Amino acid sequence: MIQEHLAGKVAKLRYIKTDVEGHDLSALQTIEDLIDEACPHVKTEVNRHNTPDERRALHRFFAGEGYIVRLAEQNTLFGRELAEDEMGSLRHFDIFAVPN
């Protein structure tokens, strides 16, 4: 739908934010082609109900797209970099994925 209605504007896309109550990875996977094409910065939620496997899969999704995964902290979006194995150590948080 995005390609059909906004094809000429996709290259200008610079930021995506998701917050779909623990289903963020599924939502991002549906727009993977858009992410590949536009390489936007992405802020997304890691819900307290996400399993450790789901959290690692989210990190691997971004790493596979060539992104650096950072903890989105209160005073800045560009918090410290998060390793895949750290994704289970926090309860409920946002990440900010930055194209590498």
Rank of each mutant, 00 (worst) to 15 (best):
1 M>P: 06
1 M>Y: 11
4 E>C: 11
5 H>K: 13
5 H>C: 14
5 H>I: 10
6 L>R: 14
7 A>L: 13
7 A>S: 15
8 G>E: 15
9 K>W: 14
9 K>V: 09
9 K>Y: 14
9 K>E: 14
10 V>T: 15
10 V>R: 15
10 V>N: 13
11 A>F: 05
12 K>F: 06
13 L>C: 08
13 L>N: 11
15 Y>A: 07
16 I>Q: 08
17 K>S: 02
17 K>D: 00
18 T>I: 06
18 T>K: 09
19 D>E: 04
20 V>D: 01
21 E>W: 02
21 E>K: 07
22 G>Q: 07
22 G>N: 06
22 G>R: 04
23 H>S: 08
24 D>E: 07
24 D>A: 07
24 D>V: 05
25 L>K: 07
25 L>M: 10
25 L>F: 08
27 A>R: 11
28 L>Q: 10
28 L>C: 10
29 Q>W: 02
31 I>E: 09
32 E>T: 13
32 E>V: 13
32 E>M: 13
34 L>R: 13
34 L>F: 14
34 L>V: 15
35 I>D: 09
35 I>H: 12
35 I>R: 12
36 D>E: 14
36 D>R: 15
38 A>V: 11
38 A>M: 14
39 C>N: 14
40 P>T: 11
40 P>Y: 05
40 P>G: 13
41 H>G: 03
42 V>F: 05
43 K>Y: 00
43 K>A: 15
43 K>M: 12
45 E>Y: 04
45 E>R: 09
46 V>F: 06
46 V>Q: 08
47 N>P: 00
49 H>M: 09
49 H>I: 10
49 H>E: 10
49 H>R: 12
50 N>K: 06
50 N>E: 10
50 N>A: 06
50 N>Q: 14
52 P>K: 03
52 P>N: 06
54 E>N: 04
54 E>V: 01
55 R>F: 00
56 R>I: 02
58 L>Y: 08
58 L>I: 05
61 F>E: 12
61 F>P: 12
61 F>Y: 14
61 F>W: 12
62 F>A: 07
62 F>L: 11
64 G>R: 11
65 E>Q: 15
65 E>R: 15
65 E>C: 14
66 G>T: 09
67 Y>L: 10
67 Y>S: 14
67 Y>A: 13
67 Y>K: 14
67 Y>F: 12
68 I>W: 05
69 V>F: 02
69 V>R: 08
69 V>M: 06
69 V>Y: 03
69 V>G: 04
69 V>T: 10
70 R>E: 01
70 R>K: 11
71 L>W: 08
71 L>T: 00
71 L>S: 02
72 A>Y: 02
74 Q>G: 12
75 N>K: 08
76 T>Y: 03
77 L>P: 03
77 L>A: 10
77 L>V: 03
77 L>Y: 12
78 F>H: 13
79 G>T: 08
80 R>S: 06
80 R>W: 02
81 E>L: 04
81 E>S: 06
81 E>C: 03
82 L>C: 07
82 L>D: 04
84 E>Q: 06
84 E>N: 05
86 E>N: 02
86 E>H: 00
87 M>D: 01
89 S>Y: 01
90 L>Q: 01
90 L>D: 00
90 L>H: 02
92 H>M: 04
92 H>L: 06
92 H>E: 04
93 F>R: 05
94 D>G: 05
94 D>S: 07
95 I>N: 09
96 F>E: 04
96 F>V: 02
96 F>D: 08
96 F>L: 11
97 A>L: 07
98 V>A: 09
99 P>W: 04
100 N>P: 03
